[in-house]
């Protein structure tokens, strides 16, 4: 392979017309989509030889832990930094995530993801950051489970893939439910587990999930999102049951 063909969906600003622009980038071994976008920055010329502007996208760590470079690559939401060109069919189609407000080209505004975390009280209320001695004991096995859940990078891929994330409802998405499961499983987080479950039982919460299970398929970290949703639904049922008996 000598060259790589890209078709990139571009748009200067939300509300303006979007258009496709093609690029031909010299191939380098082990090159990723990010490598190609950085080549365009150095030489912003499209496939027809016309000068253009560099493509705007978001990236930070380049090793798939910060979640910044999510985009749709050949129809699938994923991280650009780990999308190796040699394993992709050409022309490689790059589009911005569609479930978030567009900023420019491949960059979207994902601030609502932090707001959703606030909705479910995604934190452990502590008395302060001063030293009041060690936290609770945890078994090795338990630590391994919560460690796995804590690896979410807030990349937004699960929202992009979810049919229930659409303009007609305010579903918080799988990552938020998984985050609640993580916090509720921590011994110190368990003390306020019911507050978070209550928040997930409100509108936009657990009841919006339609069990399509697309989230699990796209999660770059392989988080057990469907399992998390089922577990939280169980917690919610138990909560309803207790409430109906007047014991909480």
């Amino acid at each position: 392979m000598k060259e790589v063909y890209f078709k990139i969906k571009r748009c200067l600003q939300r509300g303006r017309d979007s258009y496709w622009e093609e690029f031909v980038i010299p191939y380098r071994s082990e090159m990723t989509v990010v490598t190609a976008l950085r080549e365009i920055q150095k030489n912003p010329v499209n496939a027809r030889g016309q000068k253009t502007t560099p493509v705007v996208w978001e990236c930070s760590c380049l090793e798939e832990v910060c979640g910044a470079c999510s985009m749709i690559i050949n129809g699938r939401a994923r991280q650009a930094c780990s999308a190796f060109v040699a394993r992709l069919e050409q022309p490689i189609l790059l589009e911005p995530l569609s479930k978030f407000p567009l900023v420019r080209d491949l960059k979207v505004d994902r601030l609502e993801m932090s707001q959703n975390l606030r909705r479910v009280k995604s934190w452990i209320p502590v008395d302060g950051t001063h030293d009041v001695g060690p936290g609770p004991h945890q078994s090795v096995r338990h630590q391994q489970r919560v460690y796995q859940l804590s690896r979410c990078t807030h990349c937004g891929c699960c929202l992009e893939a979810c049919p229930q994330v659409n303009p007609h409802n305010d579903f918080v998405g799988a990552y938020v439910i998984s985050q609640v499961r993580w916090l509720n499983r921590l011994p110190s987080g368990a003390l306020n587990a019911e507050d978070r479950v209550d928040a997930l039982m409100a509108s936009g919460g657990l009841s919006e999930c339609s069990q399509a299970q697309n989230c699990v398929k796209v999660c770059p970290k392989g988080l057990p999102l469907a399992e998390s949703i089922i577990e939280m639904q169980k917690s919610a049922t138990l909560r309803l049951f207790k409430r109906s008996l007047g014991i909480s």
Partner: peptide, 23 residues
């Protein structure tokens, strides 16, 4: 430093554990 580790442990950093359950 030890006080900072305690604090992180309390706010949910999933530190690896010994068999007895300590950090």
């Amino acid at each position: 430093a030890p006080g900072l580790i305690h604090m992180l442990d309390r706010i949910g950093v999933p530190f690896h554990r010994t068999e007895e359950g300590w950090v």
